[in-house]
Design a protein around this nucleic acid. Structure first.
Length: 633
RNA sequence: GCCGGGAUAGCUCAGCUGGCAGAGCACCGCUCUUGUAAAGCGGUUGUCGCGGGUUCGAUUCCCGCUCCCGGCUCCA
C-alpha cells in the first residue's frame, strides 16, 4: 500500500498499517512525537488504519491541531479523577473547545470552587503513572447499551443510542473508559501543563428543560510556558474588562435600582455624544433621515406586528385606563407608522428612516452583563422601505456602511448569515426569496461569512456582524435583516409607475448595534485609551507651582474655545502625582506649564504612553489637536 | 430562569470555630510651591445587600428575597 506525505513523497506500508505505523516508517522520533494524523484535512487517531492513496500529515505537539487532542485527552483524565473522588457520578460529554476543554457531570453532591483543586490534585496523582490510551473499535451497540445501563450512565446510554451500530469506539486509559470518537494522545505522558479554570451549570444538550449538569472548564498546553502565557493573557483581559474601566474612568455605573440599565456619568456621556455626532454625519452622508418614535404603545400594534405572539416573554407591559400597553422591544412598528401616515409613491423609495431608538427587552436575569447585555437598549436603528428591485443594493449599502464604521475604530468583525428559525411567520417561498437576496448581496459585496442556520428573526433572515470581547466571548454588534412580513401585516403600500399599488420590502438594520454595547466594546477594544476624538478629557493642564495656576487656566480656556475638552488640574499635589493620575485616566495629552512656558507662551507636551515630548507654542499645538480630533484619527 | 459562587468604608479587599468592625487607596485638614508615573503628618468614613428566624448576644448560623459574578452553542 502506498500513501503520500505532505512533501509529495510516497511511502510504502504494509496493508492495514496505522497512522502510527506510517509515522514510524518515517522515523522513530516522529513516531514518538506524533499526536494524530491528518488525512484530507480531517484529524484522525493514529491508531486507525490508513488507506491506499491517502495523503498523510503527521501532527505533532508543534502543530496547532494537536492542542485539541491534548485537551480532549486531558478532559478524559479529569473525568477519571472526578469518578475517583465522587463514585456514582454520571458523565456526559467532554470535548475540546476553543481555548481548552470541559466535561459535564451529574455529581452526587454539589461541588464548589475549592473542589477544583482537589480534582487537579487527583489528576496529578493519576498522571504520575503514565497510561496508554487504548482505542477499541466496532463495539457492539446492544452490549454497550446494556453495559452503560448497568453502570448507571444514562447520558452515555442516550449518546450511544444515537450512534450507528458498528461505528462506535471506546477509549480506555488506566481504569477509565469512555464512549469517544477520538482522536486521543498515545499516552497520558504529554499531559503536564493544565489547569482547571471554572465550574458552571450547563443543561444536558443545552436544553433548559433537561437536567442541569455541572460543567468543569479547564485548559491544557504542551508546554508550561504556553500555559503561563495563556493565564497571563486571561489576567490581562480581565484588566480590560469594560465594567472595571468604566468605574475607573468614571464613565458609567450600574445599580440594583435599575438592573440592566446603565447610569451614564458626564465622562461616559462625552463618548456617547461623540458617537451620536458621528452617527448623524453618517445618516446625512448615506441618505438616512432621523426620526423619533414613542416608547409605549397600545398592545394592538404588538399583536399586529407579531411581537405579541413571538416575543411577548421578553416584553414589558403596563396599562392606562385599563387599556393594556406594551413597551417597545423594537422600533420597527414606529417606523412603519411613519411610513403609513401618508400615501407613498415609488418616487419616495428607498425611504431610509433612522432613530436612536430606546427599546427594552426583558432578558433572563443571569444573562445581564455590564454594557454588553442590557435591558435598556439604545439602538442605532434604521428601516429602509424599498421596492423588491432595490433590496440587494440597499443591503449592500448597509454592508458598506458597516465596513466604513468598523474601519473608523479598527474593529475586527465577523459576518454571519442567519436563516429561517423554527418559530417564524410567513411562507417558505417568501423565506426563499429573502434568504436568496441576502446571500446575493453578500456575494456581490465580496464579504466572507459563516452560515448560522435557523437563527434568523421570526420575520426574516439576517446578516449579523459579530465581534469578540476581551475574554474571547462573541457579541453581536450590527445586524441587517430583511423582512417581507411586517409590510404585509401593516398593509404597507406604495403607488408604482404603473399607477397600481405595490408592497414595499423592509430592511431592518443597526450597525453600531446598541450604543450601550458598542461603547462597552470600545472600552475593551481600546482598554480605556480612547483616541483623541473620543477621549472624555482630551488635555489636562498641570501647573508646576501655584504661581502658574492662572496661566494653566488660560491654556485650558484657549483649548476649550477651540472646541477641545481640556481642564486644568490646580490641586496642590506634586507634578509627578498629577501625571501618574492623568496617565491612569488615559488622558491623551498632558500639558505641563511652569516658568519657562509662561515666559514663552508655550506648553510642554506629554502624549499618553509617549513621555515628555518637549515644549511647543500653544497656538501650534492647539491647531494640531483640533485637526487630529476632527479627522477622528 | 437554572447551576455554582458572592455582596463588609467611595474603590480593592481582610475579618478562624457567634462576643465593641479593619488595612491600603480615595476623601478632608495642615505643612511643602513642587519640572514629567504616586511628598510628609494628622483625620473622617460603615443600617456588614434587604427581610425574617435561632441565641443572653448575629457581619458570622438557618430560611426567604434582591442584585452582582462565572456559565448554560462547542456533541460521544
Amino acid at each position: 500500500m502506498k500513501v503520500t506525505l505532505p512533501d509529495g513523497s510516497g511511502l510504502d506500508l504494509p496493508d492495514g498499517a496505522s497512522g502510527l505505523d506510517a509515522a514510524a516508517a518515517v522515523g522513530p522520533r516522529l513516531a514518538k512525537a506524533a499526536v494524530a494524523v491528518q488525512v484530507n484535512g480531517e484529524v484522525r487517531d493514529l491508531r486507525l488504519p490508513v488507506r491506499e492513496g491517502e495523503t498523510l500529515r503527521i501532527i505533532t505537539d508543534r502543530d496547532p491541531e494537536a492542542l485539541a487532542v491534548l485537551r480532549h485527552s486531558t478532559a478524559h483524565v479529569m473525568a477519571q479523577a472526578v469518578l475517583h473522588l465522587w463514585p456514582g457520578t454520571k458523565i456526559a460529554i467532554g470535548p475540546a473547545i476553543a481555548d481548552g476543554f470541559y466535561y459535564d457531570f451529574e455529581l452526587p453532591e454539589p461541588i464548589g470552587p475549592d473542589d477544583l483543586e482537589r480534582i487537579e490534585a487527583e489528576m496529578r496523582r493519576i498522571l504520575a503513572t503514565p497510561a496508554e490510551f487504548v482505542r477499541e473499535d466496532g463495539v457492539d451497540k446492544t452490549a454497550l447499551l446494556e453495559r452503560f445501563r448497568s453502570e448507571h450512565q444514562p447520558y452515555k446510554v442516550e449518546l450511544a443510542q444515537g450512534l450507528p451500530d458498528g461505528d462506535i469506539s471506546l477509549y480506555r486509559n488506566d481504569d477509565f473508559e469512555d464512549l469517544c470518537r477520538g482522536p486521543h494522545l498515545q499516552t497520558t505522558a504529554p499531559i503536564k501543563a493544565f489547569k482547571l479554570l471554572s465550574q458552571a451549570g450547563a443543561y444536558w444538550r443545552g436544553d433548559s428543560s433537561n437536567t442541569m449538569l455541572t460543567r468543569i472548564y479547564g485548559t491544557a498546553f504542551f508546554k508550561q510556558a504556553d500555559l503561563d502565557e495563556h493565564l497571563r493573557l486571561l489576567e490581562e483581559a480581565r484588566r480590560r474588562d469594560h465594567r472595571r474601566i468604566g468605574r475607573e474612568l468614571d464613565l458609567f455605573h450600574t445599580s440594583e435600582v435599575a438592573p440592566g440599565a446603565p447610569f451614564w456619568h458626564p465622562r461616559g456621556m462625552v463618548i456617547w455624544n461623540e458617537l451620536t455626532r458621528l452617527w448623524r454625519e453618517l445618516n446625512r452622508d448615506w441618505g438616512y433621515r432621523e426620526v423619533r418614535t414613542p416608547i409605549i404603545y397600545s398592545v394592538d400594534i404588538w399583536r399586529r406586528s407579531g411581537h405579541w405572539d413571538k416575543y411577548r416573554e421578553n416584553m414589558f407591559f403596563t396599562e392606562k385606563d385599563e387599556r393594556p400597553l406594551g413597551v417597545k422591544p423594537m422600533n420597527c412598528p414606529g417606523h412603519v407608522e411613519i411610513y403609513t401616515a401618508d400615501r407613498r409613491s415609488y418616487r419616495d423609495l428607498p425611504m431610509r428612516l433612522a432613530e436612536q431608538g430606546l427599546v427594552h427587552r426583558d432578558e433572563p436575569s443571569g444573562a445581564l452583563h455590564g454594557l454588553l447585555r442590557v435591558i435598556h437598549i439604545t439602538q442605532d436603528d434604521a428601516h429602509i422601505f424599498c421596492t423588491d428591485d432595490q433590496v440587494e443594493d440597499e443591503v449592500i449599502g448597509c454592508l458598506e456602511l458597516a465596513r466604513h464604521i468598523y474601519g473608523i475604530f479598527d474593529l475586527p468583525v465577523r459576518l454571519e448569515l442567519s436563516t429561517r428559525p423554527e418559530n417564524r411567520i410567513g411562507d417558505d417561498a417568501l423565506w426563499d426569496r429573502a434568504e436568496g437576496a441576502l446571500a446575493n448581496a453578500l456575494a456581490r459585496a465580496g464579504e466572507a461569512y459563516d452560515l448560522n442556520e435557523g437563527d434568523g428573526a421570526f420575520y426574516g433572515p439576517k446578516i449579523d456582524l459579530h465581534m469578540t470581547d476581551s475574554v474571547g466571548r462573541s457579541w453581536q454588534m450590527g445586524t441587517v435583516q430583511l423582512d417581507y412580513q411586517m409590510p404585509e401585516r401593516f398593509d404597507m403600500v406604495y403607488t408604482g409607475d404603473d399607477n397600481a399599488e405595490h408592497r414595499p420590502a423592509m430592511v431592518h438594520r443597526a450597525l453600531f448595534g446598541a450604543f450601550e454595547r458598542f461603547i462597552g466594546i470600545l472600552i475593551e477594544h481600546y482598554a480605556g485609551a480612547f483616541p483623541l476624538w473620543l477621549a472624555p478629557v482630551q488635555a489636562i493642564v498641570l501647573p508646576v507651582a501655584d504661581r502658574h495656576d492662572e496661566y494653566a487656566t488660560g491654556v485650558a480656556d484657549d483649548l476649550v474655545a477651540a472646541g477641545l475638552r481640556a481642564e486644568p488640574d490646580l490641586r496642590t499635589e506634586s507634578v509627578g502625582k498629577k501625571i501618574a493620575e492623568a496617565e491612569h485616566q488615559r488622558i491623551p495629552c498632558i500639558l505641563v506649564v511652569g516658568d519657562k512656558e509662561v515666559e514663552a507662551g508655550a506648553v510642554s507636551l506629554r502624549r499618553r504612553d509617549e513621555g515628555n515630548l518637549g515644549a511647543r507654542p500653544l497656538a501650534e499645538l492647539r491647531d494640531e489637536l483640533v485637526a487630529e480630533a476632527e479627522q477622528r484619527r
